[in-house]
Design a protein around this nucleic acid. Sequence first.
DNA 1: TATTGTTATACTCTATAACTATA
DNA 2: TATAGTTATAGAGTATAACAATA
Lengths: 151, 151
Amino acid sequence: MPARTSAPDRATYFPQLAAERPDIALCRASTVVARAAETAAHEHGIGVGQHLVLKMLAAVGPRSQQALSEELRIDRSVMVGIADELERSGYIRRERDPADRRAYAVTLTAAGRRALTQAEKYIPEFLDRTFAALTTAERDQLAALLGKLLT
Amino acid sequence: MPARTSAPDRATYFPQLAAERPDIALCRASTVVARAAETAAHEHGIGVGQHLVLKMLAAVGPRSQQALSEELRIDRSVMVGIADELERSGYIRRERDPADRRAYAVTLTAAGRRALTQAEKYIPEFLDRTFAALTTAERDQLAALLGKLLT
DNA sequence: TATTGTTATACTCTATAACTATA
DNA sequence: TATAGTTATAGAGTATAACAATA
C-alpha cells in the first residue's frame, strides 16, 4: 500500500471511493486507529504488544513465547523484544518449562497484574474517543462484522 | 503495532480479544485485506496506488499531483513514484497547467482508460473472495460503518 | 530431524526535510 | 513568503534465514 497522509480539510472524492471499496476504507480506518492506539499506549508507558501479552497471560495463565506468538499473531522474533521489555519492567518472569526445557513458561508477576489493571483503565476512554463517530450499537456491529471476517 | 504473522490453525484466545478490542480487530483485518489487495493488484500488473489514481482521474478529470495526493491520502512524495510508473506505462500524461506552471495537469490517456477498465474487472471477484465470510448485506453494513468512522 | 528462543539482515512503509521553479 | 513537484534520508514495521539448545 502507498504511504498515507492525514485527512485534508474538505473531502470530495474520497467518501465515494470508500463506499465503493470496503477494502480501502478498512485499511484507511486501520491506519487512523492504529496510530491512535500506539500513541495512547505509549502515553501510558506501555506498548500495544506488551499490553496484549499481559492481557493474554492474565486470561490463560503461563504460556511459552511460541504460544503467545501464535495466539496474538505477533512474530516470535518480535515477541523476544516484547518479553525483554516486560521482564525489564518486572511485569513477567521467564521461567524454564520443566517439561520442555527449550521453552519458557512466561509468567505474569504481581507487578505485571497491577500494570495491566492500570493500563486497562484508559482503554474504554480511548475506544470512546477513537470510535466517537459510531454509536454503541454500531461499535458492537462493527466488532461483530470484523470478528466474522477474521474467522 | 508489533509485527503480525498469518493466523495459526486453531484459535482459542484471539476471538475473545477481537470481541473486546474493536481497534485490534480492525488492524488485523486490515493487514489481511491489504495483503490480499496488493497481491491481487500486482497479479494484474498494477499497484493499488496506481489503480486509485487512474480511478480518480477517470471520475473527476485532470488534476495536479497535489490534488490527487490530498484526495487519495497518499503522500505527495509517494505520488511522484506512482505518477512516474503510470507515465512510463503510457497511462497518464503530465501536462503543465498553463494557469499555474508549478503544477502539472495529470491527464488520463486512452491507454490509461483501457487499463483502468481492465483492472476494474477483477475487483468484484477480489472483493467477493476477500469478504467471503460476510453476506452482501453485511458487506454494505461494514462499508457504511467504516465510511462513518472515516468522516 | 524438528522446535524454542534468539539474533541479524533486508525490505517495505511512512515521515520529514530539503531543494527548484514558480507564484 | 508560500506552493508544486522532486529527491534523499531516517525510522518504523515486517519477513526471512540462520544459530544454539533441546526434543
